[in-house]
Amino acid sequence: MEPAAFIAALLALGGAVAAVSLRNLIHCALCLVLTFFSVAGLFLGLGAEFVSFAQVMVYVGAIAILIVFASLMTRDPGADPARVPEPRAIQPWPLGLGIAGAVTGVLLACVGSSRLLPDVTAPAVAPSVRELGQELMTRYVVALEVVGLLLTAAMIGAVVLAVREPRPLDREVGR
């Protein structure tokens, strides 16, 4: 791993840790943006130019903005004082952390001990954007259509879910 990729990986991990651990939701979202940018940098280092730009465009331009908007629209007034939290037998967060740590440990052990991983260091020839388009339009055309359908359905679903019912006065004026 070259120094640039190492720095990008460190930034990605640091941003990720901050994104799930900070108190302020907006800070979390901005750290998430840092992670997305760094991962795009990693993609660029691996030679996947197109994916890297698509990652920035979709994750930073759309998903991060959506998360920011949602956190502004749902200002949590804090826990409801009327609801007394029931005493729990097990505190949930050490358990979650334990599960995540166990999964990560197992995966790391697998990666470290695997004999099946190919050891290729030759420079890869990335398929050109034109070839990528050809592949998408021929071999993966069904998947492409399904993804298009999924995106349309998701968009309509999100609009239907989030739309406000018009208030009486709005209906009267006709807008």
Binding site: A16, V20, W93, I99, A100, G101, V103, V111, D119
Partner: peptide, 22 residues
Amino acid sequence: PLQRYLVVSTLLFGVGLAGALT
């Protein structure tokens, strides 16, 4: 090099999982 990237992605996955669970 492949293993290094896999380690990075595993750690990223672990952080995400911890966040989603806790």
